[in-house]
């Protein structure tokens, strides 16, 4: 059997295992798995409008994943990515609010808003980096703590200084004037600008990690920081650099959410794309080349599962169960495969 065929067989098997597990969960909830999968499929790829909706969710997820691949290359679990998306959204909103009633051209306002978003994400990510590099705080906990701080910050802004005239509410801040919305394709919610930013970003990350010395050295730091340091790579600088670059992409995801999707700041602005990006990164084994198709698939599951409460009275969190089952099944089967290969080689040697 050729290597290629073996690889695809593995992918197929792992997907099947995840589907069987999820079907079992559906049966446990008293629902028909076939119906559930059918509605997810129809709700995500059933029409051009649905496909454009999937692409709306795809862009921020792709951006978050692009950033995470950089920190993963440096061996860091940048769990603070959720908070970085939120900070990106806050900084973007801040610029938009400050300039919305001036006669600054819309294009300039939006460009400044995106720069501010990238900056906001980078600052928040740099905090996690500083805590890790200079404070010895594991980046998982530093990032997580910063996630919660970001949530507090966004709630305070929405219910406090930036509240709607009258009373603040979970529906978010006052929407921006129409001229400041990132233009979308007629009849859809999809912005080609946002799509371009997402695709260029993953392209940049792919090039950075596979085609530059920076990427090579970053991976050396990720594999073995001590050895990298002895080889003359300034480890601290590379780690901080990875955090900052990652934060820039997460911040852009927040900026896209504000300027192209919601046109205001809402409490759930990050939509869990940071968490999902972490799952995708693990599923694709941190290979940037696979990021675009797999994030598209995950976005489709998210959008498709919106149909579940409407059509089958099920909770839409099923998409998370299926995504988790996929990642878990890939991780476990990969472990089993390696164990099997090792056994076979040992048997040969004897």
């Amino acid at each position: 059997m050729s290597k290629q065929l073996e690889r695809w067989g593995f992918v197929l098997l792992a997907t099947l295992v995840a589907l069987i597990f999820t079907s079992f969960v559906l049966v446990l909830a008293g629902a028909s798995p076939v119906a559930a999968y059918w509605y997810i499929l129809k709700g995500s790829l059933g029409s051009w409008t649905k496909i454009s909706d999937v692409m709306v969710a795809w862009v921020p997820l792709l951006l978050a994943t692009a950033g995470l691949l950089v920190t993963f290359a440096a061996g860091q679990w940048n769990i603070g990515v959720e908070g970085q998306i939120v900070l990106g959204a806050i900084f973007t909103t801040w610029v938009m609010r400050s300039l919305q009633h001036t006669n600054t051209p819309a294009a300039i306002v939006l460009i400044l808003a995106f720069i501010a978003g990238a900056f906001g994400g980078a600052i928040w990510s740099a905090f996690a980096g500083i805590l890790k590099v200079y404070g010895g705080v594991n980046e998982i906990f530093g990032g997580l703590g910063l996630d919660f701080v970001a949530v507090a910050l966004i709630l305070w802004l929405i219910f406090g200084p930036w509240k709607r005239p009258g009373i603040g509410s979970m529906s978010g801040t006052e929407p921006f004037p129409h001229r400041l919305w990132l233009p979308t394709i007629h009849g859809t919610r999809l912005s080609l600008w946002a799509l371009a930013i997402g695709l260029v970003s993953i392209g940049v990350v792919y090039f950075l990690l596979t085609g530059t010395y920076f990427g090579l050295k970053l991976k050396a730091v990720g594999r073995n920081p001590k050895a990298a340091y002895l080889m003359g790579i300034p480890t601290t600088k590379y780690l901080m650099g990875a955090f900052i670059i990652s934060g820039i992409f997460a911040g852009l995801a927040g900026a896209v959410q504000v300027t192209a999707v919601y046109h205001r700041l809402i409490p759930a602005i990050s939509s869990g794309y940071g968490w999902l990006g972490l799952m995708v990164s693990m599923l694709i084994n941190f290979q940037a080349a696979w990021a675009a198709p797999v994030t598209f698939f995950f976005a489709a599951l998210n959008i498709g599962s919106i149909q579940l409460p409407i059509m089958l009275k099920l909770d839409s969190s099923l998409s998370g169960v299926l995504q988790g089952a996929l990642v878990l099944s890939f991780l476990l089967l990969e472990g089993a495969r390696r164990r099997w290969v090792k056994r076979r080689e040992e048997a040969k040697n004897e």
Binding site: V25, A29, W77, G320
Partner: peptide, 25 residues
Amino acid sequence: LKQSQVAVGFVLTLMTRDLAYFLGN
């Protein structure tokens, strides 16, 4: 299976949360 504890634990923490929300509905 010699897989990363952090990776598996992290996936499980997200998946069990969604399982709770789905089955608890």
